[in-house]
Design a protein around this nucleic acid. Structure first.
Length: 583
DNA sequence: AGTTAAATAT
DNA sequence: TATATTTAAC
């Protein structure tokens, strides 16, 4: 009604401040509640004494919209206060206490409490208290038009204004206000029923996911829980449930990888993987490394899309001052087993199976990238950092000014293995160009190869560069890479396959390819469902960040493990889309 | 609180 | 239709 500020026209602007009076003798709780309520964009007044509260309410008759009061208070029973308020002011009152003793709750309700909250109180509970105000008004038939309703509706999506954080959940909501204009169509039931309040969906941007992974890594993979991650992430508005959900998905993705790799192992006749000395499971976290990408003009990290567009397109990527863009790398398949171990003593066993040596061998023929690269895995980042999912390829073509630099690679849509990121965006961009003689030589070689042969050599060459990379790491070079034709890949892990393929694509197109080369690449990558513009451009470097190698390179691994800001000298060790798991 | 699975939204 | 995310349930 008019008496309430939050409902009146003058308070049209969001966030509308529902005026809440909090009464609690416990100063700590008072503080906490105040903070939480303010986060909800409410106008908060606190009071440590029931009598004081009563006085305040009487004094400012129309100064509050709702009262939240603790049950146990020294000077006056919370129920009494409740009674008084109900009698004198007819304001909705929410009672709260630490215990949920039925009789108390009952009493509270009987005395007219519109709700009974148990401490600790969650944000979402507070967030929705406005409903009580509205409901009461509606029931009293005092609301006139839908004016107040719409305003209230907006409040269901409070913005968390916190200067401290670079972004808030509010920013991540897909269509922040998408529902508002549709408000007129909603019927009253939606507003009077608590269960109808829809929670804005959290969009797991690259940025957010990075935080997530970082948190996971900080704790230790086998120890993390949603709560811990949530705390570590420090993202206002994000809930434990959100994190739990993401974690679930993450694990699912990982286990899928594992399963696949296991399958491949089985079909891997003859060659057996040599187990490496077990390491601390805690070590077997996701490998994470920044992908360093030269940045052109897009410095704000919003790649190619504006806030208004579908959230999925809104990929946030951290950009360093130097104009470097980095994207978190996801997990390496090899290390997944630790995660998904379902048995009690999984730790021990995991530590053993985690880091195995890979020995691929391979026939160097009949390779079809299409067999190894599900379309979902295609990264589509291009120079002026444009990201899009496969379905949006056409857009990208339109947008990509550097289109001509990238060969059009067509990839066949594959089975749905490891499709963690159906709607994921890979930001695999070109790494900084640093002199890589080896790479140059290889490019050169590719260019010189006859077309037919070059197809085959894509892999061979890769294997060599791989080898050299390994050596750079001070590793014992891994055996020759081998790829079988057909659907069975000699390698142990799918992720690797993908990465491998990726690398090869990049390798093959990383240099200024001749038209023949492009053509041949197209031939290799045939079977097409959707034309994909693989974001490749000149100066791309090679990636040698391979699990096979990594598994054995403890030192390096260690150095990377927790260091996300670490400016990886990635020019040498280009990147892999471990960011596969970007949602 | 952590997980898992069902329900929804996109 | 397939996924991503939220809810509910264990």
């Amino acid at each position: 009604m008019d008496s309430s500020g939050f409902c009146s026209p003058r308070n049209n602007a969001f966030p509308a401040g529902l005026r809440v009076l909090v009464v609690d003798d416990d100063a700590t709780w008072l503080k906490i509640l105040e903070k939480m309520l303010k986060k909800c964009s409410y106008e908060v007044t606190t009071c440590s004494l029931a009598r004081e509260a009563l006085d305040l309410l009487r004094e400012r008759k129309d100064g509050f919209d709702i009262v939240i009061s603790d049950v146990n208070m020294p000077d006056m029973d919370g129920f009494k206060l409740l009674e008084r308020v109900g009698l004198e002011l007819d304001l909705p009152v929410i009672m709260m206490s630490v215990d949920g003793e039925t009789s108390r709750v009952m009493k509270g309700v009987q005395h007219g409490a519109c709700d009974y909250l148990l401490k600790p109180i969650r944000m979402k509970e507070l967030k929705n208290i406005w409903q009580h105000v509205l409901r009461k008004r509606i029931h009293e038939g005092k609301e006139t038009d839908g004016d107040g309703l719409e305003e209230l509706h907006m409040m269901s999506q409070p913005e968390y204004c916190n200067d401290y954080y670079s972004f808030s959940i509010g920013d991540m909501y897909s269509g922040k206000k998408r529902r508002i204009d549709a408000g007129s169509k909603h019927d009253d039931r939606e507003y009077s029923d608590t269960s109808c309040i829809k929670k804005p969906r959290v969009v797991w941007t690259v940025d957010l996911h990075q935080k997530f992974v970082k948190a996971v890594n900080q704790t230790g993979f086998d120890k993390v829980g949603p709560k811990k991650i949530l705390d570590l992430m420090v993202v206002p508005g994000l809930t434990r449930e959100n994190v739990a959900s993401h974690l679930q998905k993450y694990r699912l993705y990982l286990s899928r990888l594992q399963k696949d790799s296991a399958l491949k192992d089985t079909s891997f006749a003859g060659v057996k993987r040599a187990d490496v000395p077990p390491r601390d499971p805690a070590e077997n976290m996701f490998l994470q490394r920044p992908i360093v990408v030269p940045q052109n003009d897009d410095r704000n990290g919003n790649c190619g899309t504006s806030r208004n567009e579908s959230p999925v397109h809104n990929v946030n990527v951290k950009i360093h001052d130097a104009g470097i863009k980095e994207v978190a790398l996801g997990p390496v398949a090899e290390q997944l087993k630790a995660l998904t171990g379902d048995d009690s003593d999984s730790k021990k066993r995991n530590s053993q199976c985690l880091s195995s040596n890979y020995s691929f061998r391979l026939p160097s023929t009949d390779i079809t990238l299409a067999d190894y690269v599900p379309s979902q895995y295609l990264w589509t980042t291009e120079y002026p950092q444009i990201q899009c999912k496969p379905e949006s390829i056409s857009h990208m073509h339109l947008d990509n000014k550097f289109d001509h630099l990238s060969p059009k690679v067509k990839i066949q849509k594959n089975e749905q293995v490891n499709t963690m990121p159906a709607s994921s965006y890979y930001s695999i961009g070109p790494a900084n160009r640093k002199e890589d003689n080896l790479a140059d030589r290889e490019f050169q070689r590719i260019r010189e190869l006859p077309q037919a042969e070059s197809e085959v050599n894509l892999f061979t060459i890769q294997s060599e560069s791989q080898l050299s990379s390994t050596q750079q790491f001070g590793q014992t070079p891994s055996p020759t890479w081998t790829i079988r034709n057909g659907s069975s890949f000699a390698g142990p892990i799918l992720l690797e396959d993908l990465e491998f393929a990726h690398r090869n694509i990049r390798l093959s197109s990383g240099s200024a390819l001749s038209s023949e080369d492009k053509e041949s690449l197209n031939n290799v990558l045939q079977g097409v469902h959707q034309p994909i513009n693989v974001g490749i451009h000149n100066g791309e470097s090679f990636d040698c960040f391979d699990p096979a190698i990594f598994g054995a390179v403890t030192p390096l691994y260690e150095s990377l493990k927790f260091d996300y800001e670490f400016q990886f000298d990635s020019m040498e060790y280009p990147v892999l889309d471990q960011s596969l798991f970007i949602v």
